[in-house]
Design a protein around this nucleic acid. Structure first.
Lengths: 339, 339
DNA sequence: CTGTTAGCGCTTTCAC
DNA sequence: GTGAAAGCGCTAACAG
């Protein structure tokens, strides 16, 4: 679209293209008079440098990509994303970078990654061996894995198993035997063979270990919400209820689900925590505000985003120093949905 | 970073660069055997097309930009953004576009816009005449204005004044005379001379009109939160309290602020709504879940995002049909923070 | 301090 | 069905 080129400005200003380029990029190397003149002409002509040309030359677009495991529209239904983006964004703000959200276009993430003009990527919810990640190797673009297994690539994870274990233990210690476990499906997991450790399965492992320790039967498969969102939790709870389940507690693998459960319980007149204890995971900002305030397992979401972005930008300009694997702690946060 | 170029693939496959290009873009014009061979070599060499080169040539990056009025990190502290992004994202998902969040780098939004390889922009919280927007004209990139004044450019707005007027009227009708009005500062407003109608001022106008109609003195300037976030509202409420204010109701120009007020009230043992009625604006998803459920003015946030993105993508490929100005309705949603 | 020149990696007429 | 060559718009050596 950009019609006015550097050459036209140069011609009209009676200087060389170089001078124009310098005017914008290293004005100090030019005589102030020239700079002024070029600037005036540029303004008059309405010149704007073409970002693509610039990027082609420098192989820098000034943007970092965030690869989410599902459609953008679904991803942001999970309240986890807002604080995570805040964390990533704080680094972008600092370094004058844009933040590009890329989703798996129609299963063909390949195309999406290939097309996206980002200098590096934060990959959410997939390990470095996941097929979705391979286009990144090909593009030879740095990336950091968040919430996924990685040995070679830098990664940021949290103590999912431990956190989940603690949450379950708290509930079991109070004598519950009929606990509804609610997890969610990572759309990316479907693409990959069995032992893929997405966070839902990690958390589930933690729950299972606690069940075993307390001698409570794990029973059938956990309830799986269609979407990791408030609606997803609400609907899944509704379904459980229709199936005749009347658990005395619900263990949710994400706060979003727990919020849905809270809403569903309220609609049915089930009192929380008296009749039903509810536990989440994440400690999103909304957890402190919910009705009742949600007992949950905190992970430092914003910090996670910050660190991931930091690791990425280090890889971006430092080249490759030490590909670090960071594991952030979790913490049990009792509020009002447990007794 | 991308080391392997189309030329290398061509050489190694014993064909011309053209053939390689065609293999990826118009395979039908090549003999199947050639395509297969090229593909094999490309795979072997780990070839990936360079998005910048592609974009330079086609002047299409496959990304739409979202220009936010403040640092990314601050913007996403406002729960308004998640549903808005969901709306915009739904169109991106449909059209295989990425979503690029661009913030005003150090006041020099100019640089940010200039650099961002996006095909078009959704501009939040600035009118078409705002200085921050002018780089977009220069780049000759289509954009749509959201929550800002526009005559020439397509725009999406909501009935801010009307919605605010209704909210205030509900409160005033119940006889309140000491209402704390809480608004927030749009960082962009600072850059621009007086009659800039950001949404905070529009909403404020609605409040003022209602005050007049009810013969209640407007009093001094409204309380202005530093940030449009839960913390911002909490702190501002705290400050008002320390100043000795004891209003019987709070009118918040955004739900985020109202949530903060709720938290602040709770900490002080002020009962809502009995001792203090609270009203928000936006009806973000959290409003239904808050403690107590928030009475507010609904604007169709997700729809707003969808429409903005739709308008933009239309401008992107249709060229310029009818630059439409859309105004979405608001609706009073009484819940539990009002009597 | 200024101008000439050679690419960055890809696409795409246009001849062969 | 295939290859040669001309750019897309900008940057950065390198001479002048």
């Amino acid at each position: 679209m950009s019609r006015v080129t550097i050459a036209e400005v140069a011609r009209k200003a009676g200087v060389s293209p170089t001078a124009v380029s310098f005017t914008f990029n290293r004005p100090s190397e030019l005589s102030p008079a020239t700079v002024r003149r070029v600037l005036a002409v540029a303004e008059e002509l309405g010149y704007a440098p073409n970002p693509h040309a610039k990027a082609l030359h420098s192989s820098r677009a000034g943007a970092i990509g965030m690869l989410v495991p599902e459609d953008i529209s679904d991803a942001f239904a999970n309240p986890f994303y807002a604080p995570f983006v805040r964390g990533v964004g704080s680094i972008c703000d600092e370094l004058d970078l844009s933040l590009m959200v890329v989703s798996p276009h129609e299963g063909s993430l390949e195309k999406g990654i290939t097309k996206a003009p980002a200098d590096g990527f934060i990959v959410l919810g997939a390990g470095e061996k996941h097929p979705d990640v391979s286009p990144l190797y090909r593009r030879r673009v740095p990336f950091v894995i968040v919430d996924g297994d990685a040995e070679k690539a830098p990664s940021v994870n949290v103590e999912d198993e431990k956190g989940a274990h603690e949450a379950a233990s708290r509930l079991l210690a109070r004598g519950h035997t009929d606990i509804l476990v609610m997890t969610f499906l990572n759309p990316r997991s479907q693409l990959v063979e069995a032992p893929f450790h997405d966070i839902a399965s990690r958390r589930q492992s933690g729950y299972m270990r606690a069940f075993e320790e307390h001698g409570v039967a794990w029973g059938e498969a956990p309830a799986e919400a269609k979407q990791c969102s408030i609606e997803g939790g609400d609907e899944r709870m509704k379904a459980a209820w229709s199936d005749g389940h009347r658990p005395t507690a619900v263990l949710c693998a994400a706060d979003a689900l727990a919020f849905g459960v809270l809403l569903a319980a309220e609609k049915r007149g089930v009192r929380v925590p008296e009749d039903l204890e509810v536990v989440g995971f994440d400690d999103v900002p909304e957890a402190a505000l919910s009705r009742p305030a949600l007992s949950t397992v905190r992970q430092p979401i914003r910090e996670k985003g910050r660190i991931a972005a930091r690791l990425l930008t280090e890889a971006l300009d430092g080249g490759g120093s030490s590909p670090r694997s960071i594991v952030l702690p979790t913490e049990w946060v009792p509020r009002r949905t447990t007794l």
